[in-house]
């Protein structure tokens, strides 16, 4: 087998795969943030906490009700999405006429409360969640061993990202969404129920985070801090991709996952900060983000 700069291919491809998996989570989470920011103008800092909450919901469904991974993959995002709808109706909807900062502060507070509650009841040691039987094991690709579940995470995230992109860019419902992002007053004056659309969009964005949370449960243990660790990176991804760009959020998510993986191969010490270094460079050179539109 070939070697690249003295790096054995197993190591390189292994880290790239790991990067792609991290990138899958970045993509699904930053997509949810972009969808929410686009229509609600709210920087949803509670996104990581809701991702974590969905992982816990999946764990609870299994632990208390015996409901397994596959139903949980649908149920947990629905439950967390419904909770998001409740948050939107009771709290966020009061902030739309105010500056972005208020939404960010409120959702930051909500994130701390949600995390605090889970930490209080479940501690921080993490709870195990089994990989579903159908996806256990793996296959030998010759140059590396590919665990089935990790392959599934990549496939599922690509499907969800593509499906969301398609819905927003190619359907009538998506046209309403894009139009309401530009001029909600006029869309309302055409007879479309914009407040309902905003509520469902927040619910959908949160459900995306929930979906990522269930996908993550078998890989990372279910832990109250799992969202807090991830959300900072995801915000950097959104800044790099450009706020409000759907395709930008998706592509940047995968791309930065891979960049992180490559950095882990060639300069492991830099892997934890590489995304933030890229963010700083992008902010200096192209502040609207790689795919963002100038305000």
């Amino acid at each position: 087998m070939f070697e690249l700069l003295g790096i054995p291919p197993q190591v390189l491809l292994g880290q790239l795969l790991l990067g792609l998996i991290n990138g899958s989570f970045y993509a699904v989470l930053s997509l949810g943030l972009a969808v929410i920011f686009g229509l609600l103008n709210i920087i949803n800092f509670a996104h990581g906490a809701l991702y974590m909450a969905a992982a816990f919901v999946a764990w609870m469904l299994l632990e208390y009700l015996g409901i397994g991974y596959w139903p949980a993959l649908i149920l947990a995002p629905l439950i967390v999405g419904a909770f998001g709808v409740l948050l939107e109706r009771t709290m966020l909807s009061r902030l739309y006429h105010l500056d972005h900062l208020y939404g960010l502060l409120l959702t930051f507070g909500l994130a701390l409360i949600i995390q605090g509650l889970f930490r209080n009841y479940y501690g921080i040691s993490g709870l195990p969640y089994q990989i579903p039987e159908a996806l256990s094991g793996g296959r030998n690709l010759g140059f590396m061993f590919l665990p089935n579940y990790r392959a599934w995470v990549v496939v599922a995230s690509v499907l969800v990202c593509f499906g969301t992109w398609f819905m927003i860019e190619k359907t009538r419902l998506g046209a309403y969404l894009r139009a309401a992002t530009e001029n909600p007053v006029l869309v309302g004056a055409f007879g479309i129920n914009v407040p309902l659309m905003i509520m469902l969009t927040y619910g959908f964005g949160v459900a995306l985070a929930g979906f990522a949370g269930v996908l993550a449960a078998p890989i990372y243990s279910v832990n109250p801090n799992m969202g807090a660790d991830l959300i900072i990176v995801v915000f950097a991804v959104v800044v790099i991709g450009g706020m409000g760009s759907i395709m930008g959020a998706i592509l940047t998510g995968y791309m930065l996952g891979l960049v992180e993986g490559l950095t882990r191969v060639f300069y492991p010490e830099g892997s934890a900060v590489v995304i933030f270094v890229i963010m700083a460079i992008v902010l200096l050179i192209k502040p609207e983000g790689l795919f963002g539109r100038t305000a």
Binding site: R178, A179, E182, N183, V185, L186, G188, A189, F190, N193
Partner: peptide
């Protein structure tokens, strides 16, 4: 609400036209 008024049968073509750039 404006959306109810629209549903009653009134439609507006606003000043500056209100064409959506993302559509």
């Amino acid at each position: 609400q404006p959306r109810q008024i629209a549903r009653a049968g009134i439609a507006i073509c606003p000043e500056e036209r209100g064409i959506f750039s993302s559509l």
